[in-house]
Write a protein that binds this DNA or RNA. Structure first.
Lengths: 233, 233
DNA sequence: CGCGCGGTTGATCAACCTCAACCCGCGTGG
DNA sequence: CCACGCGGGTTGAGGTTGATCAACCGCGCG
């Protein structure tokens, strides 16, 4: 899937230097949960690199429908997909530390700061791949499959994976808007997964896999035998 | 929306030079309609820049469901979203000319060929934006809205826009797989649009807008008054 | 205590899918 | 020449999935 996570290690070093006549990388900033980094349509004067925490990127249609186009965490680049104006809104869903980069530095960045540019290129390629995966998920899968895919990728990202347990850092409504579903549907499917013994919700925002392979099968597009008769292959 | 079109002007010049010890850009290749440039899972030994024509990028799920994640034309970069193996299949939907770039050149490309790298960066950012727009379309819109959005963006791309008339270079099934619908649904909605006097299909692959503003309203998420002129069928 | 927020659950409904028939233009072969 | 099949598209009937609307729960908080 789907979620534009990924880590960049030496950005701090690379990004903190100043090159030529271009504006320097600004110092890191702190953003609190539920604060916005920027809104769709704002003038895009800078891009950001996430250093820690989670943000969601979303668009709002005129009729009020919203679509989350990605969650991003450490290493992700924000705001580079547009030009002139941000094409997404960006809201912190946890406390977040970000490093702003003046937009003016992006022109010719490959010449002026090849190390940073290489990182950005790699990262944005990853985000494109993630967006495409998400397209496949949203466009071609059922509600059940979407949720399975989502849980698996969230778990992979929250690598603090002691004993198949992981955080769901977002609300039901966020999941729904990410997956192109209604929050009621997400809720229903979650409890259904639990009822079938595939997962255990230790709290609203904390989950454990009991039958990871069933979810994997679902996510791959296979039929998940609801029953006990799971042919193990 | 949605479709990763976009033009790069001086790539030919930038790409045809050889830099340092890295492999040179290979010469342009011709690909015929319906041929594949590569398949999902193939070893990714090179990326491509489209010089002319149209390709579709798609993924196939185990259950046979397919999702077209993008159409690409002149200027688009293909294959950069993955690493090691292609994550999409790529098929020419018209005759196509492409310029391959050895994958090995991508590492450190910013240092070795900053001009090309800058172009790639800009282009890939555009593709990311397009993918995100498509996410919003697929995830948050109804079949009717999806189709309206799609027609408008296709028309914009086929700039040969004399008198609101344009080509639909792909089959109904391709549209469906792009929009996350069934081809029957696409077909039905197309004829419905026609019946309502919004468009006129001069042939299966050629379309004219009669009431562009209605489609625009639909695509923006507004309710399309079925209008006064809905009579007699 | 009352309220609001986030989540769950239930009943109902419609959008879209599924399956099937059918149309049409075209190329092929008898 | 016609019969035939095939690919792509359209149309129809009926079924499912997921949306909609509404009630309700649990909790934190002023």
């Amino acid at each position: 899937m789907c979620i534009a996570g990924g880590r960049i290690h030496d950005l701090q070093g690379a990004g903190s230097k100043t090159f030529g006549a271009t504006a320097p990388t600004l110092s890191a900033q702190h953003v609190s949960t539920h604060d916005h980094l920027f809104f769709e349509g704002d003038a895009r004067d800078r891009i950001y690199i996430v250093e820690s925490g989670w943000v969601k990127l979303y668009r709002t249609l005129i009729d009020g429908q919203r679509q989350i186009v990605g969650f991003a965490n450490s290493g992700s680049i924000l705001g580079i997909e547009s030009d002139g104006h941000y094409s997404n809104s960006c809201e912190a869903i946890t406390d977040v530390i970000i490093r702003p980069i003046p937009a003016i530095r992006i022109n010719g960045i490959c010449k002026n700061d090849p190390a940073l540019a290489d990182q950005i290129l790699r990262q944005i390629a990853r985000q494109l791949g993630a967006a495409q995966s998400q397209l496949a998920t949203i466009g071609a899968q059922s509600a059940e499959q979407k949720l399975a895919t989502f849980l698996l990728s969230i778990a992979d990202l929250c690598e603090v994976n002691h004993d198949r347990e992981f955080d769901l850092p977002m609300r039901r409504g966020d999941m729904a808007e990410f997956l192109g579903l209604r929050l009621e549907t997400v809720s229903r499917k979650m409890t259904e997964f639990q009822r079938r013994g595939w997962i255990k919700l230790t709290s609203l925002y904390h989950c454990r896999f009991l039958q990871r392979h069933v979810l994997e099968q679902l996510a791959q597009g296979g039929e998940a035998d609801t029953g006990v008769a799971l042919r193990a292959c």
